[in-house]
Amino acid sequence: MANLQVRDIDDRLYEALKRRAEMEHRSVSQEVVLLIENYLAHDNKESERKTLSFLELSGSWVDDRSPEKIVEEIRSSRTKNTRGRDADELFD
């Protein structure tokens, strides 16, 4: 089994870990391992949830227009910015 050494840990963080471990009748080392395991398990579930949510969006936009037509409509709806063209005008 691998060993992990953490250096220069903040005293307040160590004390919080120590209190939490004592409350759960575990060593600080056991508590840290459990916290890391829980974090990694949660992180994987969250990543999977986000991936599934993204995949649900796949194909959800249906439009009869071609991509070129959509881009053309977006570009034609834009207005030209004239800010800063008049040298005497400080604010719009």
Rank of each mutant, 00 (worst) to 15 (best):
E24T: 04
E72A: 06
D92L: 13
N81L: 05
E56N: 03
E22A: 12
D11N: 15
H42Y: 09
V71P: 02
S66L: 11
S47R: 14
L13V: 01
R85E: 05
F54P: 01
E56I: 10
H42I: 10
V71K: 06
R19N: 04
D11K: 12
L35Y: 04
N38Y: 06
D11I: 13
A2H: 12
M23R: 09
R75G: 13
L34K: 04
M1D: 10
F54I: 08
S66P: 00
T79Y: 11
E72S: 01
I9V: 07
E68C: 11
D8L: 08
S77N: 03
E68N: 02
I70L: 05
R65F: 00
D86P: 08
E46V: 11
S29M: 01
I9L: 13
E73K: 05
E68I: 15
R78L: 14
R19I: 08
L4V: 10
A87W: 14
N81C: 04
S27T: 14
D92W: 08
D43Q: 15
T79S: 11
A41R: 07
N44Q: 10
E68T: 03
N3F: 08
S29A: 04
Q5K: 11
D64K: 15
E89V: 09
E15S: 09
A16V: 02
S76P: 01
A87I: 15
V32T: 00
I36F: 06
L4N: 08
Y39T: 00
A41L: 13
S29P: 01
L4A: 06
D43F: 02
K69Q: 08
F91Q: 07
S47N: 11
K18L: 05
L40D: 04
R49I: 06
R19W: 02
R19C: 09
R20A: 08
E68M: 07
T51W: 10
S66T: 15
K18H: 02
I70Y: 04
V33M: 07
F54L: 13
Y39C: 02
A2S: 14
Q5S: 12
A16L: 02
S27E: 01
Y14V: 02
S47Q: 15
S60K: 12
K50Q: 06
R49S: 03
V28C: 01
L52R: 06
F91R: 12
L13H: 00
K80R: 09
D64H: 07
D11Y: 06
E15V: 09
S76N: 08
M23G: 14
R49M: 04
E31W: 03
D8Q: 09
G84N: 01
A21D: 00
K50P: 10
A87N: 11
V71T: 14
A87V: 05
V71C: 05
D43L: 09
E48M: 02
D92M: 15
Q5C: 13
G59R: 01
L35H: 01
S53H: 14
S66V: 06
